[in-house]
């Protein structure tokens, strides 16, 4: 039997430690997985930084890290979240998102096909949101040192002139508007993770909201505050707003849009949809007189068709969110405590 000198294996199906070592495999990963999808004039330079022109005025800068499990869930994957999340964090400050960076921590053994699907989704989401991914980095860690893939995205944008949205801007009588049904993302992930199946699948709402936000600001530049209610859900976000502005918020339980299947899953798991994460929803606090116009703009937008007026800002119970039940009683809507725990019986 004749032994030939074996050539090193260069085409792998899973992520290897060498993919992060800066050598030939790193190059292969860039060429084979990242560049075909993310290619643009900035990345093509293959420099260690992106250089771009700025516009006069204020810039906004934001960063977020994504560790969701499972990586793929109905309605999206970690890549879409990573792009949309940072785009939204910029846009809710009244900024027009421009450029993103993406940092990847990969676990040894992650199938390259999954990585490629995630990168492809990121490219697609960036294109849809009108932003460019202009800088990136990849590290590989040993199996067990991270959960398949962690992604950090940071982004910059310019702040629109004349827009002043802030969590400290809430005024009594302001209207509280939500852009659509709440709890979709968190429930999609939770039901997938727990292997619960329902007659109709719950889909994540992950979406870039900058288009809708700027459509609203075009018509009503005097929006007082905007937030995307991600972790902790609407309950956490409204509590933060009430406390930052030292006002109270009163919600009408019957006005809050919740998808039927999300309600069902939440009932089953003993979880309040108000505390469940959203990834494509917007909370707006606007002067009472502008609420009608804001809703009109939102209803015309694909991510705001089910937008609803859910409550108002009050000069009472400062720092606290209170719910009016359909029975005429009231209760506190609490800041969620921490990890969502399914109940016993």
């Amino acid at each position: 039997m004749q032994l030939s000198c074996p050539a090193p294996i260069l085409r792998h199906e899973t992520v290897q430690m060498a993919h992060g070592a800066g050598g030939r495999l790193s190059q292969e990963l860039t060429q084979r997985v990242f560049m075909p999808h993310l290619q643009n004039a900035f990345l093509d330079q293959l420099d260690d930084q992106a250089k771009f022109d700025t516009v006069p005025g204020r810039m906004a800068f934001s960063t977020d890290t994504y560790v969701v499990s499972p990586l793929f869930f109905p309605g999206g994957n970690i890549g879409e979240l990573a792009v949309n999340g940072t785009v939204n964090d910029l846009a809710v400050g009244g900024a027009v998102p421009m450029y993103l960076s993406a940092g990847f921590v990969l676990e040894e053994g992650l199938p390259l096909a999954e990585l490629e699907e995630i990168v492809r989704s990121m490219a697609e989401s960036a294109r849809k949101a009108g932003v460019m991914i202009v800088a990136g980095d990849t590290k590989v860690v040993q199996k067990g040192q991270c959960d398949k893939i962690f992604i950090n995205t940071s982004g910059v944008g310019f702040v629109r002139e004349g827009v002043d949205v802030s969590c400290r801007n809430l005024k009594p009588d302001d209207a509280v508007i939500v852009s659509g049904t709440i709890g979709d993302h968190g429930m999609a992930v939770m039901t997938t993770r727990e292997g619960l199946s329902f007659q109709s699948r719950i889909s994540s709402d992950t979406a870039a909201l900058n288009g809708m936000i700027h459509a609203v600001l075009d018509v009503v530049p005097g929006v007082h505050a905007m937030r995307d209610p991600t972790r902790g859900g609407v309950a956490a976000t409204l509590n933060e707003l009430a406390s930052s502005s030292s006002v109270g918020i009163e919600l009408q339980e019957s006005s809050i849009p919740v998808r039927e299947e999300v309600r069902g899953a939440a009932e089953l798991l003993g979880i309040d949809p108000l505390t469940v994460a959203n990834e494509g929803k917007l909370l707006l606090i606007v002067p009472e007189a502008e609420a009608g116009r804001v809703l009109e703009v939102m209803h015309a937008h694909e991510y705001g068709r089910e937008a609803a007026l859910i409550g108002k800002v009050v000069d009472d119970h400062h720092g606290m969110v209170v719910m009016r039940t359909p029975f005429g009683s009231r209760r506190i809507v609490e800041m969620p405590l921490g990890e969502q725990l399914p109940r016993i019986c």
Binding site: G270, H317, R330, R331, E334, L337, R343
Partner: peptide, 29 residues
């Protein structure tokens, strides 16, 4: 409080103390 519970009635989502704290800790509500 739920963050510093002295007994289980303040911990469990079904505990009476937790329910009072969660929904009605402030007597004005």
């Amino acid at each position: 409080t739920p963050m510093t519970p002295l007994g289980a009635t303040m911990v469990s989502s079904e505990g009476a103390c937790a329910a009072y704290y969660k929904y009605h800790r402030n007597t004005t509500v």
